[in-house]
């Protein structure tokens, strides 16, 4: 069964269609790039899937169920901004996640923090932007979820941090789970993707295997994206 299924999924804000008629399904074991320029509906899509927004029309199913408490236990979501209480220390945040999510592995999180030299006693607000992003990603990836929704995980981090993030995604690969990575920095994530979805003005322009794009177009997904979205 598909982990994620959308049928005619649409979200309108007044007369503006942020997302329009999205039909797609994502199978377990896939790493999917949700690619589109700014304002193409990537974040709206992710928020609809994890139930932070309600659709104007259409439906979304996670393992056959509509977004709700049951689906939230299956979905690990990394928002595109700081989402943790910044007065907490890293260790307090680890315990907070452990209280919240049954599938969270605190030892795994502590081990990854240690590998990056992040002091668990430090308060979140005293960390640099890059380190805050690493902490948030580690917490999200230390869950044993069925669907990971990573909204712009590599926006605004240095190349070494970006490598760590991609490495973490590969290391945590689980054939039972799917990962959706939204980004417009395509060349950086290309090699870890199975499938790509191009979003344009709220619609799915293309949903294809990344290697099949390279094969049929004779060009990288990044170059192809630039052609399709040429201003």
């Amino acid at each position: 069964m598909a982990i994620l299924e959308c049928k005619n999924l649409s979200k309108h804000y007044g007369k503006v269609a942020a997302l329009e008629g999205v039909d797609l399904s994502i199978e377990p074991g896939r790493v999917v790039g949700l690619l589109g320029p700014n304002g193409s509906g990537k974040t709206t899509f992710i928020k609809l899937v994890n139930g932070l927004l309600t659709p104007t029309a259409g439906e979304v199913f996670i393992e056959g169920a509509k977004p709700g408490p049951a689906s939230k236990a299956l979905v690990a979501y990394l928002p595109d901004r700081d989402f943790l209480a910044d007065w907490m220390t890293v260790e307090q945040q680890i315990r907070f996640f452990a209280d919240f999510y049954k599938d969270f592995d605190p030892e795994k999180a502590r081990e990854m923090m240690a590998r990056l030299g992040i002091d668990p006693a430090q308060r979140f607000k005293t960390l640099s932007k890059g380190t805050r992003e690493k902490v948030q990603l580690i917490l999200v990836m230390s869950r044993k979820a069925r669907l990971y929704l990573l909204d712009e995980p590599i926006g605004g981090v240095d190349p070494a941090t970006r490598d760590f993030i991609l490495d973490t995604i590969i290391r945590n690969y689980n054939p039972e789970a799917a990962v959706i990575i939204s980004t417009h920095l395509i060349s950086d994530v290309e090699s870890v993707l199975d499938e790509v979805i191009f979003l344009k003005e709220g619609r799915v322009l293309l949903h294809e295997a990344a290697d099949s794009i390279r094969e049929t177009q004779g060009t990288s997904v990044d170059r192809y994206f630039r052609e399709v979205f040429k201003c």
């Binding site: 074991g29 896939r30 790493v31 490598d163 991609l166 490495d167 590969i170 290391r171 690969y173 090699s191 870890v192 993707l193 199975d194 290697d211």
Partner: peptide, 9 residues
């Protein structure tokens, strides 16, 4: 992991 690619690939 070493190659930085998707395990399915």
């Amino acid at each position: 992991t070493e190659a930085g690619v998707n395990p399915n690939t």
